[in-house]
Amino acid sequence: MTDKAEGSLLYLDDVSVSFDGFRAINRLSLVLEPGEMRAIIGPNGAGKTTMMDIITGKTRPDTGDVLFDGSVDLTRLDEAAIANLGIGRKFQKPTVFESHSVEDNIALALKARRGAFAALFHRRSSVEQGRIDALLETIRLSEKRDLLAARLSHGQKQWLEIGMLLAQEPRLLLVDEPAAGMTDAETAETAILLKEIARTQSVVVVEHDMTFVRALDVKVTVLHEGSVLAEGSLDAVSSNPKVIEVYLGR
């Protein structure tokens, strides 16, 4: 489509969507390089979650291009197809499968053939078991592997969901407010975990918590009323007069 998309991992150009006359996303453009980690901040209603919905196929944009890997048109695919392309998503509110054990949650997310019949006759291989064990180690839930996910604490559920995300082996992770409801210690650990992940995968983090964003130490995009207000390092954007105006008001 556009040459500009070439070489990028995620490419949004002039994307708009409105609900009942309300423009949730307004001519939004955003480019993410492979291996890049990006923090997205913005006040409530800035369109952060809607942007995630558009990328993951939950919402179709009214206009604009959304390209993955420089060429794949995401607006034509459904959620499952997009997930299988290698885009993983973590929700704002932790959603894990509450009536499954922690281990089964990871096992379900593990990269594998997703067909119904493949699943019917699926037997867990030792390779897969190894992956599961390693992931449980990473998210520090090895001890709780047989516990029902419903019984985890809020922070543990957030971690489990991140673990499930990693199990998908995505090329791009979309993480919506990972630090919400976490203790300070958990927040700090989450930042470390995300940076670890960002070494091998591209990550987009949406977050309110400025300390957390600072800890990530990555390029920041400020969203406001559905479009990009500023982009750059956290220090640069936080001294931007437009950003100050939006956040603090006149």
Binding site: F19, D20, F22, A24, T50, K58
Partner: peptide, 8 residues
């Protein structure tokens, strides 16, 4: 139908 975020 009502559309949009409220429904979702």
């Amino acid at each position: 139908a009502l559309k949009g975020r409220a429904v979702e």
